[in-house]
């Protein structure tokens, strides 16, 4: 564990806590893409198949459980909670995320560390996570002004993988035989997708104006 990875995990956890706060405090999920939340739930379920077979550390196990439980709870809440689901922007959240699923799985079959069930699902979860934010970014562009908690949610979600890139650079220089090309390249793509959001987020913070993504 290094400071970059720990900071990244804490930002990831913060993004989830901000999203839970927004949904439970405002009893609303307006501006949140259910499709992105479904993709994230799949990412964690596909990546943590080794949850009960490989024990890495208490921290690792607890964080995996937190990510799985929180992501599935958010999807359940947006679909089933009578009050919350009324505020879901169903007509705006129309990104065809099944293509992202199919493409990620197809790529995982072609590019993986080893052609085994667990490695294919691990690579699938890495590729899927890189593109899972797309429905959310499209929804933000369509829904005009973005409320503060939603903006902070997306910001921390983008920042966490940027810290993981620093973590991989650090490990590359401090550990022998460290090579994690699939995660590195996918992480670069993932962070790059946030580039324009980060720009408009910075502008809104500098000018102290409401965050607005151009359509």
């Amino acid at each position: 564990m290094n400071i970059f990875r720990f900071a990244g995990d804490m930002m990831h956890l913060t993004s989830i806590l901000v999203l839970l706060l927004k949904i439970y405090a405002t009893k609303s999920c307006s501006g949140i893409s259910l499709k992105t939340q479904e993709l994230y739930a799949l990412v964690f379920l596909a990546r943590y198949l080794d949850l009960f077979t490989d024990f890495i550390s208490v921290y690792n196990t607890i964080m995996k459980l937190v990510f799985i439980v929180s992501s599935t709870a958010i999807v359940w809440c947006m679909k089933r909670d009578r009050v919350v689901r009324r505020s879901y922007d169903k007509q705006l959240d129309t990104f065809r995320h099944y293509f992202l699923l199919a493409a990620s799985f197809a790529l995982a079959l072609l590019v993986n560390e080893k052609f085994t069930f667990q490695e294919i699902f691990w690579a699938f979860s890495i590729y899927l996570e890189a593109v899972a934010i797309l429905p959310q970014l499209v929804l933000l562009q369509r829904s005009g002004n973005v409320d503060n908690l939603t903006g902070q949610y997306v910001f921390f979600l983008g920042a966490y993988r940027a810290f993981y890139i620093l973590n991989w650079i650090y490990r590359y220089f401090t550990e022998t035989h460290f090579s994690r090309w699939i995660a590195c390249i996918s992480g670069l793509v993932q962070t790059a997708l946030y580039a324009d959001f980060f720009y408009y987020y910075y502008i809104s913070w500098k000018n102290n104006t409401k965050l607005k993504l151009p359509a």
């Binding site: 990875r5 995990d9 990831h12 080794d50 490989d54 890495i56 690792n60 964080m63 995996k64 990510f67 560390e113 667990q118 691990w122 993981y164 973590n167 995660a183």
Partner: peptide
């Protein structure tokens, strides 16, 4: 084991 080393990140 190799697998453990491999997936030690979240």
């Amino acid at each position: 084991s190799e697998v453990k080393k491999h997936h030690d990140e979240l």
